[in-house]
Design a protein around this nucleic acid. Structure first.
Length: 821
RNA sequence: GCCGGGAUGGCGGAAUUGGCAGACGCAGCGGACUUAAAAUCCGCGGCCGCAAGGCGUGCAGGUUCGAGUCCUGCUCCCGGCACCA
């Protein structure tokens, strides 16, 4: 009997599969399935144990879809631009291009060693000019569509990476990449107008088959809130200010107004007032304090009276305008009407002894007295009852929401307004290793997009790619690159020297796979029609608001430019949970608890690693690595191997006893097929693997009755097909040993024999008063209530717990009998 | 604070629509093989109890013939967002 030797069979089949092209993408797909992984960022560390979890899942899914007659596109590529590559390159003194190429080579080797069924002819590499040419082209298209603009402003700045960061890349006041504390810097930068799509980005989430938490995060991030916009004249001034309110129902409680210290209207507001200098000084102090504080929440708000009043449009008289540190210039209008029914307003008013008024009351009398005395801040707009205005008195704020909106609109007191937390996407990066922004600055004509024939704007191959830290990219020092002519007037002009955020690269790569080598366009209409949208997309939940939101935005923008015939790129999305270290902590080099997939493959083979990563726990949940657990998966594959070898060496010919075993084998395989099929479809790979284990146990049990026999082979062959998406090498090897010339992957998915699944006798649990007292073993057919009840009543254990005749009986057909005494 | 997700043996986890709680695996115990060990194979296994039996899915209630699953009220853990008006 041959020994199970993954080290020899796995590379052998990988080579054969590649040579014969079994996993190549079909040309004219009829029943297509686009099964996609979030492409990896090729870091110097190579694959970590988290990668194979998601990649094996999609691979199993892709195989399964092929087996069930679908034409599958299952590609892979490299998200190759980006800061970490550049930082690593700087550290090692190797050019990022060279460093990235090495890393990709290593990643490719590792992925191939795992036996994934990728179509390797379709690799894309975002740092390849043939790719980023089209990233730049899309940029210019969006520019022409008015979805790209330049603006000056305070930007988050990472002092270590020496580049600006988007809001999304700042986590707890730190740079998402390197963990340094971020600061602010005044810069002119490029933005994508993602806010233009805010509504659609929220609304169309409903139609997506995505994990609910991811949808919730996107809704949250976009942060839509519908309310009223009030306009109010400033007393003794020719000036109107506007305020946004989401909780306008208690508008009669407004007693003051706050404005952000950095609000653009503020200088005008305080001009020529008595306290002008003092207010200005205080605002400077507040602004500085906020920058220093970063993302930490202020313990106690501070403010100062501006000396100005607004005349309230809804009848609350003249309201004093205060500068308040808690007011944000970039949300709503930056000015807020304030009341006793907001925690922050309430606290602020108490601190500065600003008068308050309560018009929203709890039902409870004691609580009510506290609210009336301003001892408590009451903010429950769902349960609270209004006391003013008279028309609404006694009604719940929640119930009159629409009524108030309608009334305010009708009498022109306010307008309906929707606000978003989502900000436009800042894409300029002052770093070398990225896609150059294809813009030419001309003194006469302004910024001009580079025409398609001028693309790609190639990243110059320079020695000095170190970030400068002065707010300009290292490209600014490359005179040959910078100096050019204006595409409009032909005069001397300068190139934009910033590069794009790497999320721009990954925004559209899934559109490139259907036509990866197309030279005269980013994508081919017919190829996109054949393959897009992506049917199954798998990756980590950490991309919930960055990549997944941006990619949706570009898809919609390109659809509006008539380039795409769909508005959502990813129909179904699944997230894999993190693989933690065995100690339950995150794997990290500094903790020394990292498991390297290469080592695992060396010890157990790729099939074991694949199987174990799926068996480790529910796919979307985090799981801790388990050294003993992987041995268990290895043991299982060895048992499959030994079982196969047993059948190979078994004698031919038929005798009567084998019939009984065959019935049992049919049952085991049919049951397994049913269970594994539904598990894969639901992305519950851990139960799919236990289904495989259970089935092997069943096969062994049956065969043990007669010993191995050649007539059992067809059952085992069907079993191998079920196993093959998980352990492709082992399955293929045994398949061929069993005498097949063609690859196992040309076969059809096994069918289920429903009649075989049915057992001849079934166990019927008998409960007395809901408690299990006996289990009857009865023939599967003819299980009427009368038959079962009669059998149950003759059981000693049932009699014992049942005093006399049962008052009532609940019989669930073929499943359970409950006697109530 | 707000929004998600979760809590089941020693451990990871199973359990269609409410119907035998603990599948499958890990660790453990007992046995076979072996001079011995590893590997492999067979068996046992929620807790308490000698047993009959009782108790068991985070806690407290409820609905139901019957609840891990449904309802109400909590506790704790994980993730995301957070002066967002």
């Amino acid at each position: 009997m041959k020994r199970y030797d993954p080290q020899s069979i796995e590379p052998k089949w990988q080579e054969i599969w590649e040579k014969t092209g079994v996993f190549k993408t079909p040309d004219e797909p009829k029943d297509k399935q686009y099964v996609l992984d979030m492409f990896p960022y090729p870091s110097a560390d190579g694959l970590h144990t988290g990668h194979p979890r998601g990649y094996t899942a999609t691979d199993v899914f892709a195989h399964y879809r092929r087996f069930t007659g679908h034409d599958v596109l299952h590609p892979i590529g490299w998200d190759a631009f980006g800061l970490p590559a550049e930082n690593a390159a700087i550290k090692k003194g190797v050019h990022p291009a060279e460093n990235t190429a090495q890393n990709i080579e290593n990643f490719r080797r590792q992925l191939k060693r795992l036996g994934y069924s990728y179509d390797w002819d379709r690799e894309v590499n975002t740092s390849d000019p043939d790719y980023y040419k089209w990233t730049q082209w899309i940029f210019t298209e969006l520019f022409k569509a008015g979805l790209v603009y330049r603006a000056a402003g305070q930007q988050w700045w990472c002092p270590k990476d020496k580049t600006v960061l988007a809001n999304e890349q700042v986590v707890d006041g730190r740079c998402e990449r390197c963990g340094s504390e971020v600061t602010k810097k005044e810069l002119t930068q490029w933005y994508f107008k993602i806010t233009e799509y805010a509504d659609e980005l929220i609304d169309s989430l409903d139609e997506l088959d995505w994990p609910e938490p991811i949808k919730a995060m996107q809704r949250n991030w976009i942060g839509r809130s519908e309310g009223l916009l009030f306009s109010a004249p400033v007393k003794d001034m020719d000036l109107e200010i506007q305020t946004f309110s989401a909780h306008y129902e208690a508008f009669r409680a407004d007693t003051f107004v706050v404005i952000a210290p950095d609000h653009p209207l503020l200088p005008r507001l305080i001009e020529d007032t008595e306290n002008e200098a003092q207010v200005r000084q205080f605002c400077d102090y507040l602004i500085e304090k906020r920058i220093k504080r970063g993302f930490e929440e202020e313990k106690e708000s501070e403010g100062i009276f501006t000396g100005r009043y607004v005349v309230d449009p809804v009848g609350n008289g003249e309201l004093p305008i205060w500068v308040a540190s808690y007011a944000l210039a970039d949300y709503g209008t930056g000015i807020v009407k304030c009341s006793a029914h907001d925690e922050r307003d309430f606290k602020f008013a108490k601190k500065y002894r600003i008068p308050l008024k309560a018009v929203l009351m709890p039902k409870d009398a004691k609580e009510r007295r506290q609210v009336e005395a301003f001892e408590e801040c009451y903010t429950d707009f769902d349960q609270g009852v209004l006391t003013e205005p008279e028309e609404l008195a006694g009604k719940r704020a929640h119930d009159v929401s629409e009524e108030v909106k309608g009334y305010a609109e009708k009498h022109e007191l306010a307008k309906r307004q929707t606000q978003y937390k989502l900000r436009d996407w800042l894409i300029s990066r002052q770093r070398y290793w990225g896609t150059p922004i294809p813009i030419i600055h001309c003194d006469k004509c302004g910024p001009q997009p580079v025409a398609e024939k001028g693309l790609p704007v190639e990243l110059p191959d320079v020695k000095d790619y170190l970030p400068t830290g002065d707010g300009r990219s290292p490209l600014a020092k490359v005179t040959d690159f910078v100096k050019t002519t204006c595409p409009k007037c032909g005069g001397p002009a300068e190139r934009e020297t910033d590069t794009m955020d790497t999320f721009a690269d990954s925004n559209w790569y899934f559109l490139r796979y259907p036509n990866p080598r197309k030279e005269d366009g980013a994508f081919d209409k017919e190829a996109l029609r054949q393959w897009l949208p992506v049917d199954m997309y798998v990756g980590g939940a950490e991309h919930a608001v960055l990549h997944l939101l941006y990619a949706r935005f570009w898809t919609k923008a390109l659809a509006d430019r008539k380039y795409l015939g769909f508005r959502e790129p990813f129909k179904s999305l699944r997230n894999q949970g993190l693989i933690m270290a065995e100690d339950g902590r995150k794997m990290s080099k500094s903790l020394g608890n990292v498991v390297n997939p290469d080592d695992v493959i060396k010890a157990f083979g790729a099939d074991t690693l694949r199987l174990f990563e799926l068996f480790i726990g529910p796919f979307d949940q985090p799981a801790a690595w388990d050294t003993k657990g992987i041995e268990g998966s290895y043991r299982f594959l060895k048992r499959v191997w030994a079982f196969g070898q047993g059948l190979l060496e078994a004698p031919d010919g038929v005798d009567q006893e084998t019939d009984i075993a065959e019935t049992g084998l049919e049952r085991a395989v049919s049951k397994a097929t049913k269970r594994i099929t539904s598990s894969i479809e639901q992305f519950r790979f851990n139960t799919a693997v236990s289904g495989l284990m259970e089935a092997l146990n069943g096969l062994q049990e049956q065969v043990a009755k007669t010993g191995p026999h050649a007539v059992y082979r067809p059952y085992f062959e069907r079993y191998l097909i079920l196993l093959s998406p998980f352990a492709p090498h082992l399955a293929e090897e045994l398949w061929h040993e069993l005498g097949h010339e063609e690859s196992i992957f040309t076969q059809d998915w096994p069918t289920v024999d429903e009649s075989a699944i049915k057992d001849e006798t079934v166990p019927i649990p008998v409960q007395v008063n809901g408690k299990l007292r006996a289990t009857l073993e009865l023939p599967a057919d003819g299980l009427s209530e009368a038959v079962v009840t009669e059998a149950a009543l003759s059981e000693a254990a049932v009699k014992k717990h049942l005093a006399g005749k049962p008052k009532k009986a609940i019989y669930i057909n073929g499943k359970l009998l409950n006697l109530v005494g």
